[in-house]
Amino acid sequence: MTATNLLQIDKLSKSFAENQVLKSIDLSVAAGEVVSVIGPSGSGKTTLLRCVNFLEVYDGGSIQIDGREVGYVDTSSRKRRGEVDLAGMRAETGMVFQSFNLFPHLTAEQNVMLGLRRVRKKPLKEAREIAQHWLSRVGLSHKADALPSELSGGQQQRVGIARAVAMDPKILLLDEITSALDPELVNEVLDVVRQLAVDGMTMLMVTHEIAFARDASHRIVFMADGLVSAQGKPDDLMAEVATNERLRNFLSRFSATAH
Protein backbone atom coordinates (compact mmCIF):
# COMPACT_ATOMS: atom_id res chain seq x y z
CA MET A 1 0.00 0.00 0.00
CA THR A 2 2.25 2.75 -1.23
CA ALA A 3 1.30 4.41 -4.49
CA THR A 4 -2.42 4.32 -3.81
CA ASN A 5 -2.26 6.20 -0.53
CA LEU A 6 -3.46 9.77 -0.69
CA LEU A 7 -1.80 10.61 2.61
CA GLN A 8 1.40 8.89 3.57
CA ILE A 9 3.08 9.64 6.90
CA ASP A 10 6.44 8.00 7.68
CA LYS A 11 8.43 8.14 10.91
CA LEU A 12 6.95 11.51 11.79
CA SER A 13 8.44 13.16 14.86
CA LYS A 14 7.75 16.48 16.52
CA SER A 15 8.89 18.09 19.77
CA PHE A 16 7.80 21.15 21.67
CA ALA A 17 10.99 22.18 23.47
CA GLU A 18 11.94 19.16 25.61
CA ASN A 19 8.64 17.42 25.14
CA GLN A 20 8.56 14.94 22.27
CA VAL A 21 4.90 14.86 21.34
CA LEU A 22 5.19 12.64 18.27
CA LYS A 23 7.85 9.94 18.44
CA SER A 24 7.65 8.03 15.21
CA ILE A 25 4.28 7.96 13.53
CA ASP A 26 3.56 5.83 10.50
CA LEU A 27 0.10 6.32 9.08
CA SER A 28 -1.54 6.19 5.72
CA VAL A 29 -4.94 7.13 4.39
CA ALA A 30 -6.19 5.89 1.04
CA ALA A 31 -8.41 7.96 -1.22
CA GLY A 32 -12.01 7.74 -0.07
CA GLU A 33 -11.03 6.33 3.29
CA VAL A 34 -12.29 7.67 6.62
CA VAL A 35 -9.77 7.27 9.41
CA SER A 36 -10.43 8.24 13.02
CA VAL A 37 -7.68 8.93 15.49
CA ILE A 38 -8.51 8.29 19.14
CA GLY A 39 -6.44 8.31 22.26
CA PRO A 40 -5.96 9.94 25.64
CA SER A 41 -5.39 13.70 25.73
CA GLY A 42 -1.74 14.56 25.39
CA SER A 43 -1.12 11.61 23.11
CA GLY A 44 -0.35 13.91 20.16
CA LYS A 45 -3.54 13.45 18.10
CA THR A 46 -4.15 17.12 17.41
CA THR A 47 -0.46 17.80 16.78
CA LEU A 48 -0.43 14.98 14.23
CA LEU A 49 -3.39 16.51 12.43
CA ARG A 50 -1.84 19.99 12.46
CA CYS A 51 1.37 18.62 10.96
CA VAL A 52 -0.54 17.32 7.95
CA ASN A 53 -1.27 20.87 6.75
CA PHE A 54 1.92 22.25 8.28
CA LEU A 55 0.21 24.38 10.92
CA GLU A 56 2.85 22.69 13.04
CA VAL A 57 6.35 22.35 11.66
CA TYR A 58 7.49 18.75 12.03
CA ASP A 59 11.04 17.89 12.95
CA GLY A 60 11.64 14.50 11.40
CA GLY A 61 10.08 12.04 9.01
CA SER A 62 7.88 12.72 6.06
CA ILE A 63 4.30 13.62 5.21
CA GLN A 64 3.20 13.25 1.61
CA ILE A 65 -0.11 14.11 0.02
CA ASP A 66 -0.54 12.64 -3.44
CA GLY A 67 3.19 11.99 -3.50
CA ARG A 68 4.24 15.55 -2.65
CA GLU A 69 6.06 16.36 0.56
CA VAL A 70 3.92 18.81 2.57
CA GLY A 71 6.12 21.36 4.30
CA TYR A 72 9.42 20.85 2.57
CA VAL A 73 10.58 21.13 -1.00
CA ASP A 74 11.51 17.43 -0.94
CA THR A 75 11.77 14.70 1.67
CA SER A 76 15.54 14.56 1.86
CA SER A 77 16.69 18.18 1.85
CA ARG A 78 14.45 19.61 4.63
CA LYS A 79 14.36 22.92 2.76
CA ARG A 80 11.12 24.68 3.76
CA ARG A 81 8.66 25.58 1.05
CA GLY A 82 8.19 29.30 0.43
CA GLU A 83 5.06 30.86 1.94
CA VAL A 84 3.14 31.07 -1.33
CA ASP A 85 4.12 27.51 -2.26
CA LEU A 86 3.07 26.38 1.21
CA ALA A 87 -0.28 28.17 0.86
CA GLY A 88 -0.83 26.25 -2.36
CA MET A 89 -0.10 22.95 -0.59
CA ARG A 90 -2.45 23.81 2.25
CA ALA A 91 -5.26 24.52 -0.19
CA GLU A 92 -5.16 20.78 -1.00
CA THR A 93 -6.35 19.98 2.51
CA GLY A 94 -9.40 21.27 4.32
CA MET A 95 -9.53 21.67 8.08
CA VAL A 96 -12.37 21.94 10.56
CA PHE A 97 -11.44 23.20 14.01
CA GLN A 98 -12.56 22.40 17.51
CA SER A 99 -13.35 26.07 18.17
CA PHE A 100 -14.91 26.66 14.71
CA ASN A 101 -12.63 29.66 13.94
CA LEU A 102 -15.12 31.33 11.63
CA PHE A 103 -14.09 34.81 10.56
CA PRO A 104 -16.22 37.00 12.84
CA HIS A 105 -16.54 39.88 10.40
CA LEU A 106 -17.90 37.75 7.55
CA THR A 107 -21.34 36.21 7.11
CA ALA A 108 -21.74 32.45 6.82
CA GLU A 109 -21.75 32.71 3.04
CA GLN A 110 -18.75 35.06 2.96
CA ASN A 111 -16.83 32.67 5.22
CA VAL A 112 -17.35 29.92 2.68
CA MET A 113 -16.61 32.24 -0.25
CA LEU A 114 -13.31 33.68 0.99
CA GLY A 115 -11.14 30.74 0.01
CA LEU A 116 -13.06 30.18 -3.22
CA ARG A 117 -12.47 33.77 -4.25
CA ARG A 118 -8.93 34.41 -3.02
CA VAL A 119 -7.34 30.96 -3.23
CA ARG A 120 -9.32 29.23 -5.98
CA LYS A 121 -9.78 32.56 -7.82
CA LYS A 122 -13.39 31.74 -8.68
CA PRO A 123 -15.53 34.52 -10.18
CA LEU A 124 -17.98 36.05 -7.72
CA LYS A 125 -21.04 34.39 -9.19
CA GLU A 126 -19.54 30.91 -9.25
CA ALA A 127 -18.12 31.28 -5.74
CA ARG A 128 -21.54 32.27 -4.47
CA GLU A 129 -23.19 29.32 -6.17
CA ILE A 130 -20.70 26.89 -4.63
CA ALA A 131 -21.14 28.51 -1.21
CA GLN A 132 -24.92 28.30 -1.46
CA HIS A 133 -24.69 24.68 -2.54
CA TRP A 134 -22.62 23.71 0.49
CA LEU A 135 -24.59 25.81 2.94
CA SER A 136 -27.67 24.01 1.71
CA ARG A 137 -25.90 20.65 2.11
CA VAL A 138 -25.25 21.43 5.79
CA GLY A 139 -28.82 22.69 6.18
CA LEU A 140 -28.02 26.36 6.58
CA SER A 141 -29.32 28.04 3.42
CA HIS A 142 -31.52 30.22 5.57
CA LYS A 143 -28.50 31.44 7.58
CA ALA A 144 -26.32 32.49 4.63
CA ASP A 145 -26.40 36.15 5.66
CA ALA A 146 -25.94 35.57 9.39
CA LEU A 147 -22.74 36.53 11.17
CA PRO A 148 -21.04 33.80 13.23
CA SER A 149 -22.10 35.60 16.41
CA GLU A 150 -25.72 35.09 15.38
CA LEU A 151 -25.33 31.32 15.02
CA SER A 152 -25.40 28.48 17.54
CA GLY A 153 -22.28 26.42 18.08
CA GLY A 154 -23.64 23.58 15.98
CA GLN A 155 -24.55 25.96 13.19
CA GLN A 156 -21.13 27.61 13.32
CA GLN A 157 -19.43 24.25 13.05
CA ARG A 158 -21.58 23.28 10.08
CA VAL A 159 -20.50 26.51 8.37
CA GLY A 160 -16.92 25.52 9.28
CA ILE A 161 -17.42 22.21 7.50
CA ALA A 162 -19.01 23.90 4.48
CA ARG A 163 -16.09 26.34 4.33
CA ALA A 164 -13.61 23.46 4.26
CA VAL A 165 -15.34 21.14 1.78
CA ALA A 166 -16.36 23.92 -0.62
CA MET A 167 -12.66 24.20 -1.51
CA ASP A 168 -12.84 20.66 -2.87
CA PRO A 169 -9.87 19.44 -0.83
CA LYS A 170 -8.18 16.11 -1.44
CA ILE A 171 -8.48 15.30 2.24
CA LEU A 172 -10.50 16.78 5.08
CA LEU A 173 -8.92 17.12 8.53
CA LEU A 174 -11.36 17.25 11.44
CA ASP A 175 -9.93 18.27 14.80
CA GLU A 176 -12.25 17.29 17.67
CA ILE A 177 -15.02 19.15 15.92
CA THR A 178 -17.74 18.37 18.46
CA SER A 179 -15.72 18.88 21.66
CA ALA A 180 -16.79 22.49 22.11
CA LEU A 181 -20.47 21.79 21.48
CA ASP A 182 -23.33 21.31 23.88
CA PRO A 183 -24.40 17.64 23.85
CA GLU A 184 -27.69 18.34 22.06
CA LEU A 185 -25.82 20.01 19.17
CA VAL A 186 -23.33 17.20 18.56
CA ASN A 187 -25.53 15.08 16.33
CA GLU A 188 -26.38 17.76 13.80
CA VAL A 189 -22.65 18.12 13.13
CA LEU A 190 -21.91 14.39 13.11
CA ASP A 191 -24.76 13.83 10.66
CA VAL A 192 -23.04 16.17 8.20
CA VAL A 193 -19.77 14.26 8.59
CA ARG A 194 -21.58 10.95 8.14
CA GLN A 195 -23.05 12.22 4.89
CA LEU A 196 -19.64 13.34 3.66
CA ALA A 197 -18.31 9.85 4.39
CA VAL A 198 -21.10 8.33 2.35
CA ASP A 199 -20.15 10.68 -0.51
CA GLY A 200 -16.63 9.32 -0.47
CA MET A 201 -14.77 12.30 1.05
CA THR A 202 -11.34 11.28 2.33
CA MET A 203 -11.18 12.20 6.00
CA LEU A 204 -8.74 12.06 8.87
CA MET A 205 -10.45 12.95 12.11
CA VAL A 206 -9.42 13.28 15.70
CA THR A 207 -12.40 12.55 17.87
CA HIS A 208 -13.62 11.67 21.34
CA GLU A 209 -16.87 10.31 19.96
CA ILE A 210 -15.92 6.64 20.12
CA ALA A 211 -19.34 5.40 19.07
CA PHE A 212 -19.31 7.72 16.09
CA ALA A 213 -15.76 6.67 15.16
CA ARG A 214 -16.84 3.03 15.23
CA ASP A 215 -19.77 3.35 12.87
CA ALA A 216 -18.53 6.13 10.58
CA SER A 217 -14.91 5.20 9.90
CA HIS A 218 -13.20 2.52 7.89
CA ARG A 219 -10.28 2.41 10.23
CA ILE A 220 -9.50 3.60 13.74
CA VAL A 221 -6.03 4.54 14.91
CA PHE A 222 -5.32 4.46 18.63
CA MET A 223 -2.52 6.79 19.70
CA ALA A 224 -0.71 6.76 23.02
CA ASP A 225 2.44 8.59 24.08
CA GLY A 226 3.27 9.89 20.64
CA LEU A 227 3.04 6.50 18.95
CA VAL A 228 0.42 4.54 17.08
CA SER A 229 -0.41 1.91 19.65
CA ALA A 230 -2.98 0.01 17.63
CA GLN A 231 -5.00 0.39 14.46
CA GLY A 232 -7.44 -1.52 12.35
CA LYS A 233 -11.01 -1.79 11.23
CA PRO A 234 -13.30 -0.68 14.05
CA ASP A 235 -14.33 -4.20 15.04
CA ASP A 236 -10.77 -5.54 14.78
CA LEU A 237 -9.48 -2.73 16.92
CA MET A 238 -12.12 -3.34 19.55
CA ALA A 239 -11.04 -6.96 19.58
CA GLU A 240 -7.49 -5.89 20.39
CA VAL A 241 -8.69 -4.77 23.79
CA ALA A 242 -7.86 -8.25 25.02
CA THR A 243 -4.16 -7.82 24.30
CA ASN A 244 -3.61 -4.06 24.47
CA GLU A 245 -3.85 -2.80 28.01
CA ARG A 246 -3.58 0.90 27.17
CA LEU A 247 -6.41 0.57 24.70
CA ARG A 248 -8.45 -1.32 27.26
CA ASN A 249 -7.88 1.38 29.89
CA PHE A 250 -8.72 4.12 27.42
CA LEU A 251 -11.90 2.52 26.14
CA SER A 252 -13.13 1.53 29.59
CA ARG A 253 -13.71 5.21 30.25
CA PHE A 254 -16.12 5.28 27.33
CA SER A 255 -17.92 2.07 28.12
CA ALA A 256 -20.98 4.02 29.15
CA THR A 257 -21.27 5.69 25.74
CA ALA A 258 -19.84 3.07 23.37
CA HIS A 259 -22.39 0.54 22.30
Binding site: N53, A87, R90, G94, M95, L102, F103, R118, R163
Partner: peptide, 29 residues
Protein backbone atom coordinates in the same frame (compact mmCIF):
# COMPACT_ATOMS: atom_id res chain seq x y z
CA UNK B 1 -7.19 35.11 17.87
CA UNK B 2 -4.61 32.59 16.68
CA UNK B 3 -7.36 30.22 15.57
CA UNK B 4 -8.49 32.71 12.92
CA UNK B 5 -4.98 32.88 11.48
CA UNK B 6 -4.84 29.08 11.51
CA UNK B 7 -8.13 29.01 9.61
CA UNK B 8 -6.70 31.43 7.06
CA UNK B 9 -3.54 29.35 6.69
CA UNK B 10 -5.48 26.10 6.46
CA UNK B 11 -7.59 27.34 3.54
CA UNK B 12 -4.46 28.33 1.65
CA UNK B 13 -4.34 32.12 2.04
CA UNK B 14 -0.88 33.61 1.54
CA UNK B 15 0.62 35.78 4.32
CA UNK B 16 -0.49 38.99 2.59
CA UNK B 17 -3.98 37.64 2.05
CA UNK B 18 -4.17 36.64 5.70
CA UNK B 19 -3.17 40.16 6.69
CA UNK B 20 -5.69 41.76 4.33
CA UNK B 21 -8.69 39.48 4.78
CA UNK B 22 -8.29 38.14 8.31
CA UNK B 23 -5.88 40.09 10.47
CA UNK B 24 -6.71 43.68 9.57
CA UNK B 25 -10.52 43.36 9.64
CA UNK B 26 -10.37 41.58 12.98
CA UNK B 27 -7.84 44.04 14.37
CA UNK B 28 -10.00 46.97 13.31
CA UNK B 29 -12.88 45.65 15.37
Amino acid sequence: PKGLLDAGKAMGLTPWQRLLYVRLPTMTR
